[in-house]
Design a protein around this nucleic acid. Structure first.
Lengths: 147, 147
DNA sequence: CAAATTTATATCGTATACGATATAAATTGA
DNA sequence: TCAATTTATATCGTATACGATATAAATTTG
């Protein structure tokens, strides 16, 4: 027998991801940002001046996905792209002053929209830890095939 | 201060969804199916003969997303589309014999790939319940704006 | 050191995913 | 009843997301 849809973990993850993207899209829209674009900014906020491949690793995305996102952010003047001097193939991305000025307002919008309710601050951390374990498992599974 | 990327629940959900999609893509590829296409088949497995809007509700997707998926499944001969007699606007979708014959093999492939390890059978159900709660919260948040 | 391999980025084709808009059919209401 | 609204589906434009392929630069190897 086929497993029922409701019984499947992957389906709950799938729905949650779509819902989160929608919610963030609404919140970030006044800033002209999408959720993946915002993730890039967060990643560079943690550690500025990263290469494309470093950002791919960090966000768990392929270069075919991330490259257009990075290009768009550069066009918008939110990222600066500089060729590496040591490695002529590589480029480094860093946050511009424009986006640094924007960050507090973005954070406030997200806190107001998402974290003003009890649910996420209470349940979020527990769920997050379990999802981290799940992600370790899934990453392992996705690498498995290469062997 | 901007929240660190690792601290964010939404980011873990985002990564998990991408990883799951990749894993299912590999598993379903021999059957010529993508993950969303498989979800449609699962939804109709639970209850056959549903309208487009019913499937949209069930999968949490908009019609702009689901319509092309349904069209492709019909083209492949896996779904049958029939106009409703009572409502000239509506269409009903049901599984063809072709896909019903395929289902056991699909299920076996997924079990072999994903559920042969301890992790998902053990941790899956706990995580799933918490994600269901999260999804209720997120759906509420996404509806909120209409008010 | 030169050939073979690997690495870093770029591009392409396919498939979602979303919101906005369009259209026809059904329903509601004055 | 018949205009106004709602509902069901369809289509369009934008933005991911993936794997495959391409290319140039760096690294490894024989």
């Amino acid at each position: 027998m086929m497993q029922k849809l409701e019984q499947q973990l992957c389906f709950e993850v799938y729905k949650a991801a779509n819902q989160f993207t929608k919610l963030y899209a609404k919140t970030l829209q006044p800033f002209g940002l999408t959720y993946p674009q915002y993730l890039v900014i967060l990643a560079l906020g943690d550690e500025d001046n990263q290469t494309t491949s470093s950002l791919c690793d960090r966000l768990g995305l392929g270069i075919g996905t991330l490259n257009p996102v990075l290009q768009k952010l550069v066009e918008k003047g939110l990222l600066k792209k500089e060729p590496s001097k040591k490695d002529k193939r590589a480029s480094y991305f860093s946050l511009t002053e424009a986006v640094k000025k924007l960050q507090p307002a973005i954070e406030q919008a997200i806190v107001e929209k998402l974290f003003c309710f009890d649910y996420l601050p209470t349940e979020g951390p527990i769920l997050k830890e379990r999802l981290q374990q799940l992600n370790e498992f899934l990453e392992m599974m996705n690498k498995e095939e290469t062997v």
